[in-house]
Computed example of a mutant assay.
Amino acid sequence: MTESFKKAVEEVKVLKQRPNYDEIGVLYGLYKQATVGDINIECPGIFDLAGRGKWNAWDKKKGLGKDEAMTAYVEVVEKLKAKYGI
Rank of each mutant, 00 (worst) to 15 (best):
E3D: 14
C43Q: 15
Y73F: 15
G37Q: 08
N20E: 09
K83H: 10
R18W: 07
K60H: 07
Y28P: 01
A72G: 08
E68Q: 12
V12D: 00
P19Q: 04
F47M: 14
E11A: 14
F5K: 00
T35H: 06
K16T: 07
K54A: 09
F47D: 13
G25C: 09
A69H: 02
D48C: 10
Q17S: 12
G25S: 08
G53Q: 06
V12F: 04
K13Y: 11
I41F: 12
E75F: 09
A72C: 11
G53T: 02
R52A: 01
V12R: 02
A82S: 14
F47I: 12
D22C: 05
E78F: 08
W58K: 01
G37C: 10
A69N: 02
Y21W: 09
M70L: 10
A72I: 05
A50S: 11
A69I: 00
K16N: 15
C43Y: 11
A72R: 07
Y84D: 04
G53N: 11
K61I: 00
M1K: 14
A82D: 11
K7T: 14
A34V: 02
A57P: 02
K66I: 03
A34H: 02
K54W: 05
G85K: 09
D22I: 06
M1C: 12
K60T: 06
A8M: 05
G29A: 06
E11F: 03
E23N: 04
V12W: 00
A57I: 01
M70D: 01
R18I: 05
C43R: 15
R52T: 06
V26T: 10
K7A: 13
W58Q: 01
E3G: 10
L30N: 03
G63F: 10
Y28I: 08
L15S: 04
G51I: 08
E23P: 02
V9S: 08
K79E: 11
N56V: 11
V26G: 00
R52M: 13
P44D: 09
G25F: 04
N56G: 09
V14W: 07
K13C: 08
V36A: 10
D38A: 10
E3L: 14
M70I: 03
V76W: 01
E11G: 03
D59A: 15
K61G: 01
E10T: 10
G63N: 08
A50C: 07
Q33A: 09
E75A: 15
G63I: 07
K60N: 08
K79I: 08
R52K: 15
M70R: 00
K61V: 03
